[in-house]
Amino acid sequence: MPRDAAHTDTRQEILNTAYGLVGAKGFSGVGLNEILTTAGVPKGSFYHYFGSKEAFGEALLADYFEAYLADLDATLAEPGLNQAERLMNYWRKWQATQGSIDYQRKCLAVKLAAEVSDLSEAMRLALKGGTAGIIERLSHAIAAGVAEGSLTVQGEPQTTAEDLYHVWLGASLMAKIVRTDAPFEAAIGTTRRLLGLAPH
């Protein structure tokens, strides 16, 4: 295997391992030794791949959002559906992921927003850029839905996309507190209302 490929594979293995650990314990709650031991990577090699734990956190978020946005693009382009159906499928996936105990699938934006935004400017900016990418895609999908007539909104699609993202972010945090799906069910209702869809 070429040296660059081995380097990339080891770096990615560290990131992949960290998803579950950070999803379960938070960024500050996970030590580098735990990540490296779990990944089966020699402890002394971390700084060969990342300059610091903060740089590692920034890379983790960048990697996470790259995969998340690719999945969102696929969801919002699913054939045979209108834009309203695609958008509602996205929110249902959000509920299924955030309601799961599988920490590999937990949204790092939800998990880390409050924890790291005051601790690391680089990680805050990574979160800001990633969430902006999500909102931008939702805005385009909403605009397309309005154009095709599958949904209606009051005001600009961008504003509606921001409102919906905020609703779902809040619902995810409340679901952690109450440990029921009630916040998500309320978010579904709010989403359908903001998109001009009939209640389910």
Score class of each variant (00 low, 15 high):
V178Y: 05
S117W: 04
T10Q: 05
Y19E: 03
G23Y: 14
A122T: 14
G23D: 06
T131H: 01
A186W: 06
E85Q: 14
L21T: 04
K43G: 09
A171F: 06
V153K: 04
S172P: 09
E54K: 02
V167Q: 03
K128Q: 09
Q98S: 06
L194A: 09
T10S: 09
G20T: 08
I142H: 03
M174Y: 14
E148N: 14
L60C: 07
F65Y: 15
V178L: 01
L72Q: 09
F50C: 07
S117R: 10
A24M: 09
A122I: 08
F56T: 06
R3T: 15
Y64A: 07
R192D: 11
Y103G: 00
Y49D: 11
L69Q: 12
Q158R: 15
H48Y: 15
A132M: 05
S45Y: 03
M174N: 03
A109V: 01
T160C: 13
K111V: 15
P157Y: 07
F56L: 05
L72F: 15
R11Y: 10
N33L: 02
L21R: 03
Y64W: 15
G20W: 12
R179K: 14
D163F: 04
L76A: 10
F65A: 02
L81E: 14
L197Y: 02
G44L: 00
T152P: 00
A59K: 00
D4Q: 13
G20V: 05
Q83F: 11
A175S: 15
A113C: 02
K176A: 11
A70W: 04
A147Q: 15
V153I: 06
Q83M: 12
E115V: 02
D4R: 14
A175G: 04
L69E: 14
G29E: 06
E115L: 13
I177P: 00
T160P: 00
Q95R: 15
R11T: 13
Y103P: 00
R92G: 08
L127R: 01
A113D: 02
Q83Y: 12
V146F: 02
H166A: 12
M88S: 04
C107E: 12
E13W: 10
R11A: 13
I177M: 06
D63I: 03
L138Y: 03
E156M: 09
P183W: 06
R86A: 04
L76Y: 09
L138A: 01
L112V: 08
K106A: 15
F50Y: 09
A5E: 15
G20I: 03
G130T: 03
P79V: 01
M1L: 13
T180F: 01
A161P: 03
V110S: 11
